[in-house]
Simulated assay, not measured.
Amino acid sequence: MQVALKSSRGEEVSNMKFGGEVELISGLDEFHTAISFPGVSVVHFMAPLNPHCSQMAPFLDALCARYPSVNFIKVDVIENPAVAKAENVRMVPTFKIYKNGNRVKEMVCLSHQLLEYSYGF
């Protein structure tokens, strides 16, 4: 969230990377801010007790480290039902890919390979 905090304070962020860490979103405003950054944002809608979500989390961490210029975000749909409702998420894990704030892809995905290849890297 370092980039978002600096950006919200008006600091220069154009050369910053997202830091190789999946960002946990805690509200609808924070979600909209996070996906509206220039570039690609990958959002993992998840529930902590769902075994499929738990299985995908370490892989998402690895992708985050591999692609530091991509903003990786996770949304706990139990803790943030307003975000899940606003994004029409009905099943987890759901992944949505945004580019410059616009959704470009959505998938309910359990395959590591499908998830990685969907980014278009």
Rank of each mutant, 00 (worst) to 15 (best):
V40I: 15
N88D: 12
F59K: 06
A57W: 02
P68S: 08
L5K: 12
V3P: 05
I78L: 11
S118W: 04
K96D: 02
V89G: 03
A82D: 15
K99I: 12
A84H: 06
A47F: 07
L63W: 04
F72M: 11
A4G: 07
E12N: 14
T94N: 04
E21C: 12
M46H: 11
V42E: 01
F95P: 00
E30P: 05
Y117N: 07
P48A: 11
Y119D: 00
H52A: 15
V42I: 11
N71R: 12
S14W: 12
F95D: 04
I25V: 15
V3M: 14
A47H: 10
L115D: 01
H44I: 05
T33L: 10
E11N: 06
P58Y: 03
V92R: 02
S8W: 13
T94G: 02
I73D: 03
S8T: 09
E23S: 06
P38T: 11
L115V: 01
C53W: 00
A4W: 13
Y119T: 02
M107C: 05
A47R: 06
M1I: 07
E116N: 04
P48R: 06
A86Y: 04
F37M: 09
P93T: 15
V70F: 05
V77I: 12
M56S: 05
E21N: 11
V40E: 00
C53K: 03
A47Y: 09
F18R: 07
V3L: 14
D29K: 04
A86M: 05
P93Q: 15
F18W: 14
E79I: 15
V13H: 06
V22I: 10
V108N: 08
L49R: 11
A86H: 08
P38E: 14
